[in-house]
């Protein structure tokens, strides 16, 4: 008779974590980072990723200890660190990588509505980094600088994540609206001569939109749960992003679109909470009066 050892019967904590949506996302992002680092020029990106992760973990644990909260595995902070490192150019100085990550993780703890962060931490950190530190972004983790066919890896992994976190309608609404607006721009010849829809629909720029849609837009704390709200959220992010792309250009338009949708999500959840908050019932005193002696 063969008996399975307890370790075989029950999956390890790591295996359990890997099955959670956060665990899956973390593994996918790690995989993409390693694949992207196959490009010789992006080897340095791995060091950036390590620095970013360590910074994120230190700050997250530090905040937890300061607030006297239980410091568990800071999986959210690790994901934020990876996202920051995957988007910043591999030539970014390590101090700037750490500073960007610090801004991202701190924003999660400082800008909150209830217990949820208002903005996607990585997107906010990266946007601040552009304006304050003047950083460039290569989105190398989206495999933008690798052969075109590798975009299939991003699409397959991203679709899997979107289904795992139950955000497929949001991703479809974002990408559908984004591509429709780019098509409209192309047909009506709207936009800047240096930032054309032709660029946005092709590698490497389309990789950035896919990466944002699959791995940043789907962040559960900063995006709605209901399908109806998901569709509005995705469409709003695409609309704001495309307007910025058509009028200002650059590479930050996707981040701005996402942050605008985050803001809308927070405002709408606040409004909904106020509407549904139970107020004093007018009928109760009346009933007591009627029933009383």
């Amino acid at each position: 008779m063969s008996r399975l050892s307890p370790s075989r019967r029950t999956p390890s904590r790591l295996a359990k974590f890997a099955r959670t949506p956060k665990g899956t996302l973390l593994l996918v992002l790690l995989g993409l980072t390693l694949i992207a680092a196959l490009r010789p020029a992006d080897h340095a990106g791995l060091l950036n990723a390590a620095v970013s992760i360590v910074t994120a973990v230190v700050i997250d644990v530090g905040v937890a200890l300061t607030c006297r909260r239980r410091a568990g595995l800071p999986d959210g902070a690790i994901i934020t660190g990876l996202l920051v490192a995957d988007i910043l150019s591999h030539t970014t100085p390590l101090s700037i990588v750490a500073a960007t990550t610090a801004v991202a993780v701190l924003s999660k703890h400082l800008l909150k509505v209830g217990r949820k962060p208002v903005f996607n931490p990585a997107a906010l950190g990266l946007l601040v980094a552009i304006f304050v530190f003047g950083t460039g972004q290569s989105w190398w983790g989206s495999l933008a600088l690798l052969p075109t066919w590798m975009i299939v890896i991003v699409i397959v992994a991203g679709t899997w994540i979107a289904i795992r976190v139950n955000k497929f309608p949001q991703v479809a609404a974002f990408l559908g609206t984004y591509f429709v607006l780019l098509l409209a721009m192309a047909v009506t010849h709207v936009g800047l001569p240096t930032n054309t829809p032709a660029d946005a629909l092709r590698v490497p720029f389309v990789n950035t939109a896919l990466f944002l849609a699959f791995f940043m837009l789907t962040d559960p704390p900063t995006s709605p749960a209901g399908y109806g709200h998901q569709v509005v959220f995705g469409m709003l992010a695409a609309l704001v992003g495309t307007v910025v792309f058509a009028t200002i250009g650059g590479l930050a338009y996707l981040l701005i679109g996402l942050l605008a949708a985050n803001a809308w999500q927070s405002i709408s959840s606040l409004v909904t909470k106020r509407r549904t908050r139970p107020g004093p019932r007018a009928s109760e005193p009346l009933r007591s009066r009627t029933v009383g002696p």
């Binding site: 460039g136 800047l192 240096t194």
Partner: peptide
């Protein structure tokens, strides 16, 4: 060199946000 650039970015350079070389 890239990690410790000898030359600082010009002031006003907005990185990726700026309008691309129009």
């Amino acid at each position: 060199v890239a990690r410790h650039p000898h030359h600082a970015r010009p002031k006003g350079g907005t990185g990726a946000t700026g309008n691309s070389g129009a």
